[in-house]
Structure formats: structure tokens, C-alpha cells
């Protein structure tokens, strides 16, 4: 009994913990596209759910306008709902209040970035003669584009960051961040299939987050200092990467003698012990 409950718990942990972070992009695709319209004639359970979700999306989209006044809060959602003629009390649909709004914003920005990157990739594909951007530049531009989406909400963004860091919201915001960096890496043409896959994404996530924090304090015109900061961080990362790869690529001393000696020793030992079967 105890064993089975432990197993069950382990399974639950694995499913809800690990998968959530990386394999579970499904969590994020939960949200349907805004323009998806659902005919209200259908009465099956599934369509009811979709219908409800569409209304939620509409309300959240309308609420973004009120974030400047009310912050990422229940009031903003209420005001947004009223602006498109739903009762303000409908905020009850959003049990996580402000966090739902932040999540929605994050998700739409990610989608937009995805669209932009996809278009860029298409352009590059269609005109192979044009000089391609270097990898660092590509990553830098992608991060900059994404951060620029946050600028209109800069004043209230610290509140959003705080909301996302609350323990119940951490899995979702981590999944959001990881999907973001995964998209950037994918469109930048990351081809790694080993542990580098993880290190690159984690490093990029770190760069993104630190630059985001830097941006909040930055008062320079057009946030020039932030973009310089971002360039420096990317340069650091590539520098570390080159150091690590050159050391591992360095020619190793000739190992042939060592292997031969080890082999000979092993065979001799085996013969002494009489373990040379069927030879």
C-alpha cells in the first residue's frame, strides 16, 4: 500500500513537475487563438469550454488597457470586462486574478515574437544570396524585440514579475520563459542534440531575465544602455563557450600506448586466474 502510494506520488511528481517545464508546451497551447470564433449553437461540452475560453481571452485582451491605471490586478480585469459590456463581477472567472492577466500578456507576446521570427526565417530562406546575420546578432535581435514588447508596461512590470515569482505561479511562468528561449534558439538555428541543448537554453534564459531586470532601472533614451548591456552579456556567454570548446578540442596525448598496456595487463591477469574460456 505504502509502496503503491509512493509510486503514485513519484509518477505525479514526474508528470506535473518535469514535464510541465519542458515537454509540456501543451500547457501553453491551452490558450486558443483570439480570432478563433466558436458558434454558440453547438451544445457539446467541449464547445462550451471553448466558448468560455474565448470570452476569457476577449476580457483579458480588453483589460490590458487598464493595467496602467490599476496594475496587474482584479480591478484591471473588472474594468476591462466592463469596457466590452460584460459585468465587472465576471472577474470571478479568473481565480488567479492578476497572474492570469500577466500570463495572458506573456503568452500573446511569445506568440507575436514567434510570428516575427518565423517571417524572418522565411525571408532568409527565400533569398539565400543575402548575407545572413550571425548567430549572436540573431539572438540579440530576438531578445530585444521581445523586451520591447514589455516597454509599454514598464511602469507596472515589477508588479508582474513579483506575481510570476509567487510559488503557485512559478511552474507556469517557468514554462513560459522556457518556451520563449526555446523558440529563440530554434529560429536562431540551434542544432545541438546533447547536453548543450540545455545549457544554451538555460544561459539564454539567464541573459533574458537579467536584461529584463536591467531594463526596469534604465532611464537612457530608447533604452540604449539596456541593449548595450544585452550585447555585453551575449559576448560573455560566447566567450565562455569558446573557452570550453577549445579546451575539449585540444589534442589529447597519444593514448594508444596506455590502452595497449592496460589491455595486456588485463589479459595477463585473466590468464593467471585461469579465466580464459574457450580460447
Amino acid at each position: 500500500m505504502a509502496m503503491s502510494s509512493i509510486l503514485l506520488m513519484r509518477k505525479g511528481l514526474l508528470i506535473n513537475g518535469l514535464r510541465r517545464l519542458w515537454t509540456c508546451r501543451v500547457l501553453l497551447t491551452d490558450q486558443p487563438e483570439n480570432d478563433q470564433q466558436q458558434s454558440s449553437q453547438e451544445h457539446s461540452k467541449e464547445s462550451d469550454e471553448e466558448y468560455e475560453k474565448n470570452i476569457k481571452m476577449k476580457i483579458l485582451a480588453a483589460s490590458l488597457k487598464y493595467v496602467h491605471n490599476f496594475g496587474w490586478s482584479q480591478q484591471a480585469i473588472s474594468a476591462g470586462a466592463e469596457s466590452i459590456e460584460y459585468p465587472g463581477i465576471i472577474h470571478g472567472l479568473f481565480p488567479n486574478r492578476g497572474a492570469d492577466l500577466v500570463h495572458y500578456f506573456y503568452l500573446t507576446c511569445n506568440k507575436e515574437l514567434n510570428k516575427i521570427l518565423e517571417e524572418q526565417a522565411l525571408v532568409v530562406e527565400q533569398s539565400p544570396t543575402k548575407k545572413k546575420k550571425t548567430l549572436e546578432l540573431q539572438v540579440r535581435d530576438a531578445v530585444e524585440t521581445r523586451l520591447r514588447m514589455v516597454i509599454p508596461y514598464k511602469k507596472t512590470w515589477p508588479q508582474a514579475l513579483a506575481l510570476m515569482a509567487l510559488p503557485p505561479n512559478v511552474p507556469l511562468s517557468l514554462a513560459n520563459l522556457l518556451t520563449l528561449v526555446d523558440d529563440i534558439c530554434y529560429y536562431a538555428g540551434d542544432k545541438s542534440v546533447d547536453i548543450n541543448w540545455y545549457t544554451r537554453r538555460i544561459v539564454l534564459a539567464g541573459i533574458y531575465k537579467t536584461t529584463e531586470l536591467y531594463m526596469l532601472q534604465d532611464n537612457s533614451e530608447d533604452h540604449q544602455k539596456t541593449w548595450h548591456f544585452l550585447e555585453r552579456r551575449i559576448k560573455d556567454a560566447t566567450q565562455i563557450h569558446t573557452i570550453l570548446t577549445t579546451t575539449s578540442d585540444m589534442a589529447l596525448p597519444d593514448l594508444n600506448y596506455a590502452t595497449e598496456a592496460a589491455c595486456a595487463a588485463f589479459v595477463t591477469a585473466r590468464n593467471i586466474l585461469g579465466l580464459n574460456w574457450n580460447r
Partner: peptide
């Protein structure tokens, strides 16, 4: 893996 955007296993090393 590249084509389908699959996450490689963490335990490759």
C-alpha cells in the same frame, strides 16, 4: 530531433 523539435534527453552524458 531537429526536424520535430524534440527535446533530447538530459542524460546524454
Amino acid at each position: 530531433i531537429r526536424k520535430y523539435r524534440v527535446r533530447p534527453t538530459v542524460l546524454t552524458p
